[in-house]
């Protein structure tokens, strides 16, 4: 059975909305959600109460490459998923090169996005470092029609660049309230606007995010030494 994952739920403005978002995610058919929060410790326990797996996530928004490196060295292994919102070219390049970054995000504004976006060089760097490109559906839903059309055209080119270099694409809701959340089939249907086929769309909301989460949980598990190498028994 396919497990759908919404890897990007933002912390809602009202604290009591978080629980309704988790209930709604479960009702929509998601097996796991990624929750962006400054406090990762309580999130998994909250998720257990709603029978949904919660993946801890941090969204970084550095102003420079140096700040990004400082944030990564402090925060990387406190969260299961690290995403970087690239608002500057320097940050985008540095993030794409860094193995500690899991997800690259870009501005929802089409004007900014046309200046700093997931171009071919970015895709080459991301491919070598194992980063994924994330598309937030809420960016499309929130935009006015003309802005939405421009945004869709940029995102379509980004997905094309990602596919050329075998960079995984992850599609999430990016919602900060239950009203902006959509079911997995609805998200796959919306990807028709980005010229993404149904099968590929399903992978973007199931296999691709699952791969990132499993990889990082493996690294954070006790006994991890390197990919494929674990301490099974300590002989001391």
């Amino acid at each position: 059975m396919v497990k759908y994952i919404d890897l990007h739920l933002k912390k809602p403005a009202k604290s009591d909305e978080l629980r309704s978002m988790l209930t709604h995610a479960k009702r929509l058919g998601f097996g796991a959600v990624g929750l962006a929060s400054s406090d990762p410790h309580n999130l998994r326990d909250i998720g257990r109460g709603f029978d949904i797996d919660v993946v801890t996530r941090v969204d970084l928004r550095p102003e420079s490459g140096r700040e990004l490196l400082r944030l990564l060295s402090n925060l990387r292994w406190r969260y299961e998923v690290v995403a970087v919102e690239c608002t500057k070219k320097e940050v985008a390049r540095q993030s794409a090169k860094d193995h500690r970054v899991d997800i690259l995000n870009f501005s929802p504004s089409p004007i900014t996005r046309m200046k700093v976006w997931f171009d071919r060089q970015e895709a080459s760097l991301a491919s070598e470092a194992g980063c994924a490109l994330e598309i937030n559906i809420s960016d499309i839903l929130r935009a006015e029609p003309f802005q939405c059309a421009k945004l869709i055209s940029v995102v379509r080119a980004e997905i094309d660049n990602a596919r050329r270099k075998d960079v995984p694409v992850v599609v999430s809701s990016g919602a900060d309230s239950p009203m902006l959340m959509r079911g997995p089939r609805e998200i796959v249907a919306l990807l028709d606007l980005l010229s993404v086929e149904e099968e590929a769309g399903r992978e973007m909301i199931s296999q691709n995010p699952l791969m990132i989460v499993e990889r990082n949980r493996g690294k954070m598990a006790p006994g991890f030494v390197a990919p494929g190498v674990r301490v099974v028994e300590d002989g001391r």
């Binding site: 929130r142 249907a189 919306l190 606007l193």
Partner: peptide
């Protein structure tokens, strides 16, 4: 069908109120 599903998902408000439609 896919296009209609996408269109339903695209709706975010009705009569000025925040709305979502789930199939």
């Amino acid at each position: 069908l896919r296009q209609v599903r996408a269109s339903l998902a695209y709706i975010t408000n009705l009569e000025g109120l925040s709305t979502s439609i789930n199939v």
